[in-house]
Design a protein around this nucleic acid. Structure first.
Lengths: 145, 145
DNA sequence: CTACTCGTAACAGTATTTGTTACAAAGACG
DNA sequence: CGTCTTTGTAACAAATACTGTTACGAGTAG
């Protein structure tokens, strides 16, 4: 009814996947398959492969056919900002879809004014995401168990 | 191609509308019509009425049939956070759509862990939006002219 | 060769945002 | 009282995004 599916669960899913791989590797395994991860996340393996493919482009994970996925960096060296930037290239806020009336004072100047604000907002958002590493996330997860 | 329409322009449009009303009133007019505002924003009047209707619920503006819209508070007393909260009730990030595997350590603990992070991120976002008033926006707009 | 898994295209279903038309409702005013 | 203006909303279409799903080709290991 008001489940708000507009919001992205991509960061949640991806952080979940990476944390799972990290814990699995820490327990002595080489690689994790997308199906194993998908079982924990409760989704389809293709969803996992799609997201992890983005992370591979960003150099956070690597994969091998017939085997599975592995971390390139340690969990402590990956922040949520790294993950966010790998999977969410777009901004949170957008300017006008259609160019406002340039004859109007407000229509002329509102774009740059709002853009300046949005830049600071996104910087604050990124700064906050950078504070948390996946090691922090795993610590919280294990503490809750 | 890469226009990123996923991002919301609602905050931009609404801030534009309020700033326009504020300037119009400052020039001696009582009310502004949705059609006047829509001309400056370059959109349909119904889009303006829909967004301003949300703001009316939040007590930021008022309207009269056959007349138009007016500010309830001064521009200096309205922050972008006020506007944001009036039109964007949902969070930026969402948790899993389907409940993750509760048998898995990660699946069990990842939800609360990410929720805690998201809460701080949204707090930072709100804090940043609260720093700017519509008076600040109007000042920027007039400075650019 | 066989089996396993990744890599990816293709598609459907759902939801949101935006733009648009249409029309009823409420006031202002002569 | 009748007319005109504008709001208040419903209804609909188009564009976009996200998620889930099936299908199948492409590597790699044993």
């Amino acid at each position: 009814m008001e489940s708000d599916v507009s919001a992205n669960s991509r960061l949640t899913i991806t952080a979940h996947a990476l944390t799972w791989i990290g814990l699995y590797q820490r327990r002595g395994h080489e690689v994790a398959t997308s199906e194993q991860i998908a079982t924990s996340v409760n989704t389809n393996p293709v969803v996992i492969r799609r997201l992890l493919a983005e992370l591979r482009k960003a150099g956070l994970v690597d994969s091998q056919r017939g085997a599975g996925w592995m971390l390139v960096r340690d969990l402590a060296a990956i922040t949520l900002l790294d993950v966010y930037q790998a999977i969410e290239p777009g901004p949170v806020f957008a300017l006008h879809r259609a160019t406002p009336d340039p004859e109007c004072v407000v229509g002329h100047g509102i774009g740059p004014a709002m853009a300046a604000v949005y830049e600071e907002v996104e910087a604050a958002l990124r700064g906050e995401l950078a504070k948390t590493t996946l090691e922090d996330v795993l610590r919280d997860v294990l503490k809750a168990a």
